[in-house]
Nucleic acid binder design. Structure first.
Lengths: 345, 345
DNA sequence: TTGTAGGCGTTATCAG
DNA sequence: CTGATAACGCCTACAA
């Protein structure tokens, strides 16, 4: 009994395999009693249709591919959770691969998933969006067009490439405005990984925010980073050495902010008294730091769900316009009024 | 040109499809020049073999299924990362599903993965191990035996069910010994989710540790929890109300410990002076709390890799004995000598 | 309403 | 070494 097939059922029910096939997929043209009989028999025999065989003939695997930069990043994990939930609700399987933040690995992973004939591809935080243009993604069967690719957290208009992201610039700008309203004049920025759209957009938003609040952007107040704990940790020394000395910092993400918080605590730099810190993402842990982190909430699960929805829509041939969600500032204890007289005007 | 197939190549190369197939899979019986010619042609045409068709005939999908309790848990994410890396190295795809810590969802997810004909199944932190016994996991082709199931973080001896885990009891016991050596006599324990093996084992280890150090186990020093931030946060009040008042706490995991740390900071309870805290898992963030968390390192990525290795071994028909790895205490700043005179003897 | 036949893209078993 | 031929399990015209 190496797996019961549609033929076994047909034999037992004394009908043809096609009848069984039809009965099992609620085909309209079949008599109710036959269907009932067959369905019951299938159930009783523990029949499970072979997705593989089905895929071969239909040209669809009912599977979505996800390539994530790094599940270990809480933001990515939350998004992935949203993707998984949505995919499952739609009865889609999820083939997962990790890019480890490396463009080459990302494309390689995407190619592998495509080889497994995923019906659609979702890429979380792409670093090589332009390469999807030339990635061969024709489908075996000429079911529809090419395999749709949804870029989560990236912009890229191209046929068959869809986009779901947050308004990073707007949110970063709002964060700067918050700090400005608290009286901060020298606001530093710890940037994110080069190549990422969110990184670029947050930087842009930071600059827009400064402009909006009539603050002069100073290149020396911008630090490089990669969105990791270590970045924030190492940033403290640099921040303290800056002229003018910043009284507030906007971080690329919560991870960097948490690293900074830890360094500040160790160095005895009071937060928020001596330094206000703002993160980005609102990962669960950000509510449990000391002091609790002021941050920008991203609708992480919703982003994941939207990506799946967009993908399925594209698959159905429906229009799937870019999705842009907006963030929201979560005010907690790591920000406060500027206590230091600013060195400059 | 909806996907170039082996037949297209055959036509162009003026050979039979079988020859092409052989050329492409390094079959011994084929002339070198033919192979070279065909391989070149395939390359040039951008041929990608259909995994689906291949699977249908070979009965193997070259895909592993993983069901994880919750990617959002940093421990799980790290393990998953290890699994992914190992699977990729072995050229296996990864079909992922989440159980959300729910036995019913776990089994349902496993069944879905099995329907997609994964070659093996890895379950991270199972809550329903006994149900794998009756899960139908015969393979379509009678390639080998049943689909192997690897339980990561769970014990369960059953044919076709393998196990990879950490020595939770030993590590928990060692943590208690550490605290005892620091002079603590009243050590509380915040337990993990019921149903999990790791939870049970850590509790056991906690009790063993007490016995080993001649400390009396007091039921009132044990708090329930589920391995979440909130558990630690809410535990503080309970800890302070305890008689005798504990001077140290061992937590089921780092998440609970971090919640506790946050609560202690808010309540003005000094750590480690008034309360020593030990976590479990050594998630990356645990090094960046204030104070930095003393914890038990788990070889997370190694556990994931071992699970894949075990799975592939089982697949190859080789023996795959249970794997038990040991933890190691990471001493940081959240633990210190007992400063309070103990109320009891 | 039901059965028959062909095919999805590959691999594998035979002959040549 | 190479070429027919038959599966693999299922779906789907087309025919009855």
């Amino acid at each position: 009994m190496a797996h019961v097939s549609i033929i076994d059922i047909a034999r037992l029910a004394q009908v043809s395999p096609s009848t069984v096939s039809r009965a099992l997929q609620n085909h309209p043209r079949i008599s109710p009693e036959r269907r009932a009989e067959i369905v019951a028999l299938a159930e009783q025999l523990g029949y499970r249709p072979s997705q593989v065989a089905r895929s071969l003939v239909t040209g669809q695997t009912h599977t979505l591919g996800v390539v994530a930069s790094d599940v270990t990043d809480p933001f990515v994990a939350e998004v992935l959770k949203g993707v998984e939930a949505a995919a499952r609700r739609a009865d889609y399987g999820l083939l997962m691969a990790m890019s480890n933040r490396d463009p080459a690995q990302e494309i390689e992973a995407a190619a592998v998933l495509l080889d497994h004939q995923v019906d659609g591809l979702i890429v979380i935080s792409s670093r090589a969006p332009e390469r999807y243009r030339h990635l061969p993604r024709t489908r075996a069967h000429a079911v529809g067009g090419a395999v749709p690719v949804v870029l989560l957290n990236h912009d890229f208009s191209e046929a068959g490439v869809y986009s779901v992201r947050m308004d990073n610039a707007g949110a970063a700008s709002a964060a700067v405005t918050l700090l400005s309203q608290l009286g901060h004049r020298h606001i530093a920025f710890i940037a994110g990984p080069g190549g990422g759209q969110s990184s670029h957009a947050r930087m842009t938003g930071y600059l827009q925010g400064l402009a909006l609040n009539h603050l002069t952007p100073l290149p020396e107040l911008i630090l490089q980073g990669a969105g990791m704990l270590e970045d924030g940790w190492e940033a403290l020394a640099a921040l303290q050495a800056m002229q003018p000395r910043p009284t507030a910092v906007l971080c690329y993400n919560d991870l960097a902010a948490m690293g900074l918080l830890a360094a500040a605590a160790k160095a005895g730099v009071g937060v928020p008294d001596a330094l206000s810190v703002v993160g980005f993402d609102n990962i669960p842990l950000s509510a449990y730091t000391v002091p609790a982190l002021t941050t920008v909430e991203q609708p992480k699960a919703a982003l994941g769900q939207a990506a799946v929805r967009t993908c399925l829509r594209a698959l159905a041939g429906e229009p799937a316009p870019p999705v842009v969600m907006s963030g929201q500032i979560i005010l907690r204890a790591s920000t406060g009024p500027c206590r230091l007289p600013s060195a400059v005007g």
